[in-house]
């Protein structure tokens, strides 16, 4: 074996011109702002929609309980969606970066499986509540129409709901899941290296 090679010397010879730290800080604040903006816009949008629905309730004074329950379900579905969305944003805010590699990988795996749960379960709950809410909400107004138009109104809504449930929802879940599964496999592999 050739012991003349001094790895430490070779190692230390690799250097790089360090970028100006000022530029880096500028970039940080820019990135933070754009992340925050996305979060605020999503929250604001759903809050506005909820407020709009409540306004309808106040102005049109629905007579049937089904309408009121429908409105509550719609708002509940959006609240749950927002909760999940905000939660997945804050999952990474918890300070795990300065843990040891072993603990870090464990935490990362735990976070990934939490995300997996949220993406599937929460999305399902959101769709079910939203669809049920819309269905109930429509009943009062549809019951005042002729049977023909009532069927048309519910038919269109049903098609929209089915499209969401059988096309958009699985597509969304599959996309997220593929990414997460891949990541979890890779992190598990890293974790195994440390346990070996």
């Amino acid at each position: 074996m050739d012991n003349k090679i001094n790895f430490k010397d070779l190692w230390a010879k690799q250097t790089s011109i360090e970028p100006n730290p000022g530029d880096l800080l500028l970039q940080i604040s820019k990135m933070k702002r754009s992340n925050l903006r996305k979060l605020i816009v999503t929250n604001l949008m759903l809050v506005t929609v909820s407020a709009f629905i409540i306004l309808i309730w106040i102005y049109y004074q629905p007579q049937l309980v089904s309408t009121k329950v429908g409105i509550l379900l719609i708002i509940l579905s959006m609240t749950i969606f927002l909760f999940a969305y905000n939660r997945s944003y804050t999952l990474f805010k918890e300070d795990i970066n300065s843990k040891s590699n072993t603990d870090y990988l464990k935490e990362l795996l735990a976070i990934k499986s939490k995300q997996q749960f949220m993406h599937t379960t929460m999305l399902n709950v959101y769709f079910i509540l939203l669809s049920a809410g819309i269905g109930l909400y429509m009943y009062e107004y549809t019951s005042r129409m002729t049977i023909f138009w009532g069927i048309v109104a519910y038919g269109i809504t049903l098609i929209w709901i089915l499209f969401n449930w059988f096309y958009l929802r699985p597509k969304q879940i599959k996309k997220q899941q593929l990414k997460l599964d891949d990541m979890i496999t890779k992190f598990k592999k890293l974790n195994n290296q440390l346990e070996a």
Binding site: S16, P19, N20, I96, N97, K99, N101, Y104, M183, F187
Partner: peptide, 29 residues
């Protein structure tokens, strides 16, 4: 610890920071 953890997470970040978004190095090195 922070640096090595960031390396370990590198596989996930591959697509998150498009090249050129971080400050460029102006010096012609």
């Amino acid at each position: 610890r922070i640096a090595s953890n960031n390396c370990l997470r590198h596989i996930e970040k591959l697509n998150r920071f498009p090249r050129g978004e971080l400050p460029p190095n102006l010096a012609d090195e």
